[in-house]
Design a binder for these strands. Structure first.
Lengths: 189, 189, 189, 189
DNA sequence: GATGAATGAGCATTCATTCAT
DNA sequence: TATGAATGAATGCTCATTCAT
């Protein structure tokens, strides 16, 4: 059943968030899901595969949520704000899973890193095509190297989006970050 | 001798950079250093301790280099530029060790993360006291929440400083980043 | 239906021939037979039992074929030839199943070994009563220890019958072997 | 020390002889040798490698013993007798290890089989060059296909050499077998 | 200081078997 | 008859750490 698979995914998220992928224990995950290791391996052929499932699930939702929200806004500036608002919202609603994803994004496992960058490519695209490019052509934003700018914004997003205080709140608020970014981009005569 | 300790540190940096802390193998490190595990344990009581030594060594040098360079500049703007210039320079001259440090900074091990933030605190201080504060009081920078701003700049530095292409070059140039940052900070009437 | 049982037996023969009994996987066998494990266990209560069924099926056919052929010949010499001819023929027509049987005959599982010797006892009997004994009393063969001789001939048969080249052909031809054996047995004054 | 390695080899021989390679348990072997699994893996990087060591050790000794003994005899007939005498002697003095080797020779693991045939090639050579060929050229043996004959004799040796009764004695005596073989080979006018 | 053989808890993975449907 | 999800004991292998020399 989908049920068992989901119980396993949930348990895995908790265990991996707590201990990191390497130190997470497949047997513990199964036990926490009230299932046997055998069952876990019926659904996920390897421990890495289980991690992939988590990464894919979360990143797809993450991307979709942001894309949705950005596209509902019309002008470049409110789109940029929407980007950070939706992103930070999503992260704060999914702190635990988000931790896993961000750790993978920056951790030492090249494989996971690659997979995540792949998954997040649509966000790079979104920023370029739907935010920066229109902003530049409408002279709202300065003329600039669009690729580099997109990269920079993504780094800022991913960097600020992965720092939590002890209560699991993000260190920075989305508006603070988007304001900083927009400040830099805005056209000045 | 200091000699053995250094050989061990070097070997450890290579091994950990390649495999990550968890998967790095203490016995391999000793062998690579042409020494025995016993000797390694004479110098470093645990594997984590070895990691700490690496982290501390590199981060201290990293911080000192940046502080040095920033303090040689006089006005806030050239200091900000110096910050990124010196930082990126240092990273590119120490790619392998830098990878370890950045992975720890973002990885799943809270302990290492803490230690590194501790080590990098002087950079937060440096930015606040020697760059942002003077810039604001001299009306070169906008009035803003200085703590938040410092955090943001550090995130940008750490984010952009940890992305390498396949040849080990940083994706972004220091001037691109510092320009972006200064653009945002500069006072506009 | 007999149908399911046979599909399972066929699939099992292939899997076990490829991997050996220990490494053969019951779940794979069921899947290969287009049936579920549950169904397999309806027909064969254990994995060993499935093996037994294979062993029994093949060995009975093997024995019957040889007995048939030998009894069609009349004199001891042509009976000995018939023995090897029919035996080698059978093996080459059932290479895959034959491999399983011979591996069991020589493998490490005493249980299977016993069962197979049991199954092949009629061949020992056949050689003694219908080939060697008449040959000796007709002074075609030398006087000799008949039990030992029968054992020896069986070892020769089983040894030469279990060596295949890369194309699945037997290394030796039946006439080469029977000639060798008869050469040794024949009476000389 | 060589000591530990030997204790492990001895324990492994016992365990594998009893259960077969697949079912042999590395942890049990280590315990039986009064050492830890870790130590076992210091000496043998995999379970298969441990098996290889056993196979190699025994087969080399086996081959050397037979070669030695055969070369001490001068004429083809006494050499053939020496071959079986020395071989059967060796087997009966090393019953347990010999069981492992013979099971491998006939078992389902192609890898082990190959390795053993490789190891026993010198015996094929020995029979051909030092026994059969001289016998034929001295007209002591019949003209015959020497390769096939050598194979046949080896099969007979390996077949008869791998059948033990319940007390661990070989079913056949070496002279019975060599007599049978020589009977077949001897020149008749 | 240096050595490296020994340790053993720990972990990912397999697979024959069961049983409720 | 047939199904296949669930089980969990079992096992090969790893590796940080110790300690007698």
């Amino acid at each position: 059943m989908k049920d068992s698979k989901n119980k396993l995914l949930q348990a895995a998220v908790l265990e991996i968030a707590e201990k990191g992928f390497e130190k997470a224990n497949v047997n513990h995950i199964a036990k926490a899901a009230d299932l046997s290791v055998g069952t876990l391996y019926n659904y996920f052929p390897t421990k890495r595969n289980l991690m992939h499932a988590i990464i894919d699930q979360l990143s797809q939702l993450h991307v979709a949520t942001i894309v949705d929200s950005v596209m509902k806004a019309s002008d470049p500036i409110s789109r940029m704000k929407a980007f950070f608002d939706a992103g930070f919202d999503f992260i704060e609603s999914n702190v635990i899973a988000a931790k896993i994803v961000f750790n993978s994004l920056n951790g030492s496992d090249e494989n996971f890193k690659q997979r995540l960058f792949q998954a997040y490519l649509p966000l790079f695209e979104l920023l370029r095509r739907e935010v920066i490019a229109p902003g530049v052509s409408q002279q709202i934003f300065q003329t600039l190297d669009q690729d580099k700018t997109v990269n920079l914004i993504m780094f800022i997003y991913l960097g600020t989006g992965s720092r939590f205080d002890d209560e699991g709140k993000l260190w920075m608020k989305s508006t603070e970050v988007s304001t900083f970014v927009l400040n830099s981009l805005r056209y000045k005569e």
